[in-house]
Structure formats: structure tokens, C-alpha cells
Amino acid sequence: MPNIHLETKNAVEALKAGELILFPTDSYWSIGCDANNNAAVEKLFTLKKSNSQRNITCFVADDRMLYRYVKQIPYAAQSIIEVADTPTTIIYDAPQNIASNLIPKDKTIAIRIPDDEFCYQLLRRFNGAIATSIAHADGETIPKSFKEIVPAILKDVAYVVNLQKEKICTTSASIIQISNSSIVKVLRK
């Protein structure tokens, strides 16, 4: 039986080395890298066959970690985080302390606090944000399980987490944009 602590340790070592990992989340299997490492983020864009920051979500462990990466957290965001019962990504204004190539021209950042024990352990042990994207190249079908991930993705990541490989994913994360002036837009429900 896979050991969550060993899997966390191995994934963190790969992230700290500037490598890509493949890991299960509270929605789909994702490719991840150190969100503060421009070179690692470039590797993620290359594997995704896209340089669009819109396809990237940064994961953080909790509210305390969120404050490191966003200058201001609108009250509406706090309320949504507290009541969300499905994976919910929030797009914030004014990101900070993050790789420059993750920040689009409109100076926003998509961040999620995943509701998954492995993700939480990984983020706490890594002690930083992880830039993530669903494990597929742009334009390809989204894999609903580990076995649907194409070989090209598997061969180009440094570490594949050996947990939840039988999990079937059927739910995408909701995406909500909340400006610092508290304008709320639901982009995907």
C-alpha cells in the first residue's frame, strides 16, 4: 500500500529541484511545479503546449498561505472559501511573490485551496504555492482517471505520485473571479 508520507517527500524533492510532478487533486489529476520558479513554470507551459496563464491554477494549503500570494483577499472570497462544498478556484487581483511568467497582463491569479489530504500534506511540506494544470496538453481530451493520461505527459514529468490511481474524476472546479472592489463573476459553475 502506498505511503502518503513517502509520496509527499518524493514529490517535494522533485518540486524543489524545479521539476514537474503528476499528482491527484480534489478534481482531476494535475501536473504541478514550484509556482515561484520561472524555469519550472516554462516546463509546465511546454508540456501543456500552451503559454496561457489562464490554464494554470496555483494551489495553496490554507488561508495563511493564500495571504503570501495575494495582496488583498476580498471579503466575498473568504465567504466563498468557507461555504464551498466542491472544488472552487478563485481568481484574485494583484498577485505577489509568484513567478512572473504566471501573471497575465490583467495582473490576476487563479488560486485554489484543494480539499484533498495528499494535496494538503504536499503543500504544507513544500511550504509554498504549486502551479498546476490538468494532466493533458491543450486541445486534448481531459483524462478522467490516471489510466487515461497520455504517455507523453507521463514521460515528461519527473515524479508520478503513487496514490489514488483508481479514482475517477467527474467534476471540474468552479471558477469565480472576485475583484478587489468586490465584483464577483462566476466563470464556470
Score class of each variant (00 low, 15 high):
L6I: 08
T8N: 00
K9A: 15
A17P: 01
A17H: 02
L22W: 09
D26E: 00
S30A: 14
G32H: 13
C33L: 13
D34V: 15
V41I: 12
L44I: 08
K48M: 11
S50E: 01
N51H: 10
N51V: 06
S52W: 07
R54E: 06
T57P: 02
V60K: 00
Y67W: 04
K71V: 05
Q72I: 08
Q72H: 11
A77D: 01
A77G: 02
S79T: 02
I81D: 01
T88M: 07
I90F: 07
Q96E: 14
I98Q: 06
R112M: 03
Y120S: 06
N127I: 13
G128P: 00
I130F: 08
I130A: 11
D138S: 14
D138P: 05
D138R: 12
G139H: 06
K144E: 04
S145M: 04
K147Y: 13
I149V: 08
I149W: 04
I149S: 05
P151V: 03
L154A: 13
K155V: 15
D156C: 03
V157C: 10
N162M: 11
L163P: 01
L163R: 08
Q164A: 09
K167I: 09
S172H: 06
I175K: 07
I175V: 15
N180G: 13
S182F: 10
L187K: 02
